[in-house]
């Protein structure tokens, strides 16, 4: 029964991402240990836990930026199904990261080229996948600036002249322009004022559901997890101590550490 028509829905019901027993050691120290989960299309997963608990280490392993010491990260390639990303050629992995994935850094300066124009920051990702049509690139860029609520008249200004919130929205536009299926975000709102955070969160929420994006969001802020994520993993000392639907984990925490986290915040 290996016809195209029967195999297609099989791909669709397979997870987009499969993280299997991922461990990353730094010499003697543990970055993260034995983490496993599946992520399906359209699911937003938050990873929470105190600083130093291994959240960013795990994110970097999953996003192809840091090879795990043990375990595998499989991604559902279009037409090929689940493949171990660390067994792809380097060029292929780089292309994947540039097209099918996005990575939003905590500090927008790590995700933007701060001295070239806002428009070039967005257009660059399109050119990287071979688009050479200047007018079309500019139109698409303006469209994405608009969708992340940036003033398109600032298209030729360098992001160095933008506020932190604007830079963060530009970073998001830069990532979304290639229509990725999976976004990685490391504390996307942590560097922003509270008032700006709400706006960015609302924008991210809307875009994720509109575009059917899957996302993995690292955050230490449980309110961010509550607002953005369907599912939540709680990490402590490099290990996942609890996971479930976000509201389950926050409203009926089981592990002592989760109970402590939840009871230490005012209201999530």
């Amino acid at each position: 029964m290996a016809t195209a028509s029967t195999s297609a829905p099989e791909f669709a019901s397979a997870p987009l991402l499969r993280v299997n027993a991922v461990t990353r050691l730094y010499g003697e120290r543990t970055g993260c240990r034995d983490v496993s989960f599946d992520l399906h299309q359209g699911e937003v997963l938050a990873i929470a836990g105190e600083s130093g608990s291994g959240k960013t280490t795990l994110l970097n392993c999953i996003a192809g930026r840091s090879r795990p010491t043990a375990g595998t990260v499989e991604y559902n390639l279009r037409h090929e199904g689940l493949r171990d990303i660390y067994r792809l050629s380097e060029a292929r992995l780089r292309l994947l990261a540039r097209t099918d994935w996005g990575f939003v850094h905590q500090n927008p300066r790590d995700g933007l080229r701060i001295d070239v124009s806002a428009g070039a920051n967005v257009g660059e990702r399109l050119m990287a996948i071979g688009d050479r049509h200047y007018g079309r690139i500019r139109d698409t860029t303006e469209d994405w600036m608009h969708r992340v609520e940036l003033d398109t008249s600032r298209i030729d200004d360098a992001p160095a002249t933008f506020s932190g919130g604007m830079q963060q929205r530009l970073q998001i536009a830069r990532n979304l322009v290639t229509h990725p299926r999976l976004m990685f975000m490391d504390e996307p709102t942590a560097s922003l004022d509270v008032s700006v955070q709400a706006r960015l969160l609302d924008l991210l929420r809307g875009l994720a559901s509109e575009l059917g994006l899957a996302a993995i969001v690292v955050t230490h802020d449980l309110a961010v997890a509550r607002l953005l994520a369907h599912r939540l993993l709680i990490m402590k000392s490099g290990q996942v101590v609890e996971s479930g639907l976000t509201d389950q984990v926050l409203d009926d925490p089981q592990h002592p550490y989760t109970q402590l986290l939840v009871s230490s915040v005012l209201q999530a």
Binding site: L245, D247, D251, D252
Partner: peptide
């Protein structure tokens, strides 16, 4: 009631 919504485990 929350258990019927899987809000409580």
């Amino acid at each position: 009631l929350r258990s019927l919504y899987a809000n409580y485990r």
